[in-house]
Design a protein around this nucleic acid. Structure first.
Lengths: 335, 335
DNA sequence: GTGAAAGCGCTAACAC
DNA sequence: GTGTTAGCGCTTTCAC
């Protein structure tokens, strides 16, 4: 079996002490330029890589980060995770991915497991039903760095990154208005979610911008955030049963968009007159029937930014007290 | 910051030595039943978890496994990874995921990086263009456990898990025949891939089963395995330009299926008379237009089985010489 | 049946 | 500017 070179090996080969080698490799200020050069060159030549276990043991760090998402096999999240991995990998961090399937219970269990596994930090996009954030607050207070992405919460003060959901919803709703729709229904995700409210706000903003009155009767929430098909189908049926039938529907999430299209197909609905717009990061959304106007988020980039924030938090030598919330813009596609 | 309990802590609290505690926790035969009980109970009560870094340092293991796939944000692979994670997580392993984008070069770079990062083992689904497996053979010979899933190779003798691609292709082609198609074209993935040849075999088998002659002119390969849209579009155009136009197309991969549907849409082709069937694990394939008959693989399960095999390899105390190849069945869906 | 001690690879006081 | 030493948490010989 291949045995990787250690600092000791290098030290022995170069007639130096291990500590000198260690310092040289990490560019310690006490080491002479010449020694550094020799050491670095030799380390290169034997393909030296620091042993993460030894480092972790010493520094009390695991060099692993926990990722908690509702669903891994969902376009948006798999794209975000691809972004996360691309940075984490490069910086020498492992990941542990866990899915909640939008269940609050699994979410808190998973988060606690991850914390016990001594991850160095946590990237999380909240489940749709969660309203009690104690389990996170406690861990965060105890020193576990957390960064929220996409589905963020106000209750914990830390780095966050999300999309400009309001403007995304504004653009999509506006596009529907531009197609002469006036009775635009909203099929929203769970009201606990940050993204739901931001998208609702964008929807309302567009209506008022175009002097269209807002009507509660045209809004339905899907509390399971699209993970429960039946809920979406029922909401859709209710909307269409309105005495004054909507002429367009704006859908507030990726999976609800899919469910809704499936419901239209399953119910054999004639949506000839009804225009549909929605958030979606599916790579085949342009091929779906009926076709929809869609808002796409910069998922990959969001993942990258989220880890970068987390690593800043983890690797900072001083406690950070100033937190930033990054908001990424969205793109509207009209087929 | 929360400080986890160590073996030392337990030893001190119970007036025992660390070694006794260690042995008791791992059910060492030398320890009296009573001591074991006390130790285990106390460890429970303080929520003791062994420190993976210390363990890894001692045992020269990283408790992490590398995953190499062509594309993370692809339905099949994200489902497989969900399966991998579900097992790995439970068994206390981290993962490092890397994508090749079907490039042989990135594949060998990534694999070598992972090996340098001292992963304990590797799960890999080969890139479409790879024909030289030296970089894998070498690592495997050096003791790195490897398990292949989905896109497997014959050249390395180890555990493998894949789908019954031949029977899947047989079923799909048969379904097309059942719809009165006789000139069935094949849009295949890269010929280097195991899955391509198995699916080709199933296609041929179905033809001969129904006494339909096989014709090379109805077969096109996509060497980029669907990651290059243009290649698929060109292949499709060629097939349709055949003097004797095909009345059906069977598509040998998920991403090529998507590309093909997109091409039909982009080219504004009238596919009224042409039936389409293909492999796909997309969760929205049933909503695509034109609709297709599709074969679905048990991706999640394949991921689970693959890690289980890998962990068996990693954790075995004796070198394993008998390797198994598991073949999972597929399901055919006719819309 | 239990304890003492060494060592995995690395870093950080503390010498010199 | 470089070396010595101790220790992170755990396992494992070797004593007793």
């Amino acid at each position: 079996m291949y045995k990787p070179a250690t600092i000791k090996d290098i030290a022995a080969a170069l007639n130096l002490s291990p500590s000198t080698v260690s310092r040289a490799l990490r560019d310690g200020y006490e080491i002479s330029a010449e020694t550094k050069k020799t050491v670095v060159a030799y380390a290169q030549s034997v393909n030296y890589k620091s042993n993460p276990n030894a480092l972790g043991l010493k520094n009390k760090r695991s060099y692993s980060i926990g990722i908690v998402v509702p669903e891994l096999a969902n376009s948006f999240f798999s794209q975000a995770i691809a972004g996360i991995e691309s940075v984490a990998y490069e910086k020498g961090y492992h990941t542990i991915i866990s899915q909640t399937h939008d269940s609050t219970e699994r979410e808190s269990i998973n988060v606690n497991h991850l914390a016990n596994r001594s991850v160095d930090g946590l990237l999380i996009s909240m489940s749709s039903g969660t309203t009690d954030y104690d389990f996170l607050t406690r861990l965060n207070k105890n020193g576990l760095p957390i960064v929220f992405f996409d589905r963020i919460i106000d209750e914990i003060d830390t780095f966050k990154v999300t999309s400009d959901n309001q403007s995304g919803a504004f653009k999509a709703t506006g596009a529907l208005v531009g197609m002469d729709c006036r009775r635009i229904a909203l099929l929203a995700s769970a009201p606990q979610l940050s993204i739901t409210n931001e998208r609702l706000a964008g929807y309302k903003e567009a209506l008022s911008h175009h002097h269209i009155p807002f009507s509660e009767s045209l809004v339905r929430y899907c509390y399971k955030g699209g993970s429960d098909y039946q809920e979406v189908e029922d909401a859709l049926k209710e909307l269409l049963a309105n005495t004054d039938k909507p002429d367009a529907i704006f859908i507030g999430s990726d999976s609800i968009s899919i469910c809704c299209i499936r419901a239209i197909k399953n119910l054999g609905l004639d949506t000839g007159g009804i225009k549909i717009a929605g958030f979606s990061n599916s790579d085949v959304v342009d091929l779906l029937q009926p076709s929809i106007i869609y808002v796409r988020q910069r998922a990959f980039e969001m993942g990258k930014i989220a880890v970068e924030m987390l690593l800043k938090l983890i690797e900072s030598r001083y406690p950070i007290t100033e937190f930033e919330t990054r908001v990424l813009d969205t793109e509207l596609y009209c087929p």
